[in-house]
């Protein structure tokens, strides 16, 4: 088995955004379950939060390849 330590580091770095995205959508789902009429507003907020957390993961893989 051969590999690159950068990728192990990226794997560790991806844990954070992974948990973050899980939390965001958990909050979104319970929000919609409590107040279905707020779906539209909640959805844009959820997508913004998802994008923000996802950006960290993607920055991570960019740095893992670049450095």
């Amino acid at each position: 088995m051969e590999g690159n330590v950068n990728m192990v580091g990226y794997g560790l770095a991806a844990i954070g955004p992974g948990i973050g995205i899980g939390l965001i959508f958990a909050a979104y789902i319970s929000g919609v379950a409590r107040q279905p009429e707020a779906r539209g507003v909640l959805q844009s907020i959820a997508i913004l939060g998802f994008a923000l957390a996802e950006a960290l993961a993607i920055i991570g893989i960019g740095l893992a390849f670049a450095l």
Binding site: I47, A55, I58, I59
Partner: peptide, 18 residues
């Protein structure tokens, strides 16, 4: 990388977040 992330986030906000 940071500039691209900023631009991407701005576009996400512009397209889906307002």
């Amino acid at each position: 990388l940071l500039l691209g992330m900023g631009g991407g986030l701005y576009l996400v906000w512009f397209r889906y977040g307002r």
